[in-house]
Simulated scan of single mutants.
Amino acid sequence: MNPDSGPGSMPSVPESGEHKHVGLGEIAGAAGVSKATASRALRHPESVSPGSLAKVRQAMAIFGVDSGSQDTPTGPMIALVRPAAPAGNVDPYARLFDLLTSRVFAQGIAAVHVEAVANQAESLAQSLLGPAGSEPHVQGAIVLGGGAAGELAAKLAERHLPQIRVSNARHEDGVSRIVLDATDGIATAVQHLVHLGHRRIGLAVLRDSAAAGRIAGFRKSMAQILHIPATRDQAPVVEAAGGTMAGVAAAEELLHLQCSAVIACAPALSFGILEAAARARLDVPRDLSLLTVGDMPDADVIAPPLSQVSYDWEAIAVSALGEVRAMMANPVEAVAIDYSVTPDLVLRASAVPPQRR
């Protein structure tokens, strides 16, 4: 398996003496560099920076390919796990995954990329850990998101592998966790939209384990800020499946309910709302204000540039890697951590005072 071979893929850990044929794209992907940089590192190592050269050599070490260098790192390996994004969906953890990859390599550690899909937790855990009773192939893991990634995290926890999870839901499972708490972010979004003059605000949220908390937080914020009972009629909410078309359906329902502003809790829903507005010949933000809670890739270059409530991914990457390294250094005395990270408001151009439609 390799990082470019689709859902559930990861670099297989090579057996001793095993011959490996690995493509340039696979090496570049695992190293987090471009194909051109990977090519230069292989052909003319003196032409690339020491940091990029180290990343390429470590990536080759993951795949079991001899780089011809005497200083290729042979230290610990950390698995970076994220759920495979279904077709048409945006990966909300893409930025954090890239930052973690760079930081892992920069610290002289090999990163094993894993995309988790449903019903493959057992086989993926076996690939990472090896047979029961043996030393695991990886010495730690950082697991992003829930769903299939959470299933794999549970399997890793059964073998007591040092790991930390980064997700938007809290569970009492004894696993160290950084919770991306969107509740305060939703309250910030509501407060900003109300300050602009909006009174008819809707929420589009994914139908997942975090939905109930987000809906409750939204209605509580609406009640406190607007001094209303915040019933279903006064604080409309649409739960949607993943994907842009689900976002379109959610937006159409909220537009039918005469919302002048929508808070979207996933990138795919935001794209769907933009599509629905275009179909209805409505201008964003003149006819409909939109604010995204969570990471929105390229939010600053979308038309219009999207305001969002987003996280400090750099700080989260530093914390997650630091915590898992501490666990790896002393697994016997490691104490499970559990804390929340609140997002900040980034204003752009997708939310303005309401206009008459």
Rank of each mutant, 00 (worst) to 15 (best):
P162T: 00
Q258S: 06
V293S: 09
D4Q: 12
P331S: 07
D344L: 11
V138H: 03
T342G: 05
G68Y: 01
E333H: 15
A211C: 07
H160K: 15
H113N: 05
L100C: 03
Q258C: 03
V56C: 03
V248E: 06
K55D: 05
G294M: 03
F105Q: 00
G294Q: 06
F271P: 02
A30D: 06
G150T: 05
S319R: 13
V56I: 07
I215H: 08
A121I: 01
A210T: 09
G29L: 15
R279T: 12
G88K: 04
D338Q: 13
L124G: 01
P131R: 04
E46R: 12
I186T: 11
G272Q: 06
D4E: 11
E333V: 13
A241F: 13
Q58I: 08
I62E: 06
P86T: 01
L53D: 01
R199P: 08
A110W: 00
V48N: 07
H160P: 06
E15F: 09
N168V: 12
A303C: 10
H195Q: 14
P76H: 07
Y93M: 02
T37N: 08
Y311W: 14
T101S: 10
A87E: 11
G247L: 07
A84T: 04
S39C: 08
I225E: 08
H227F: 11
A189M: 10
G174I: 15
R199Q: 14
A84V: 01
A303R: 12
R159K: 13
I273T: 15
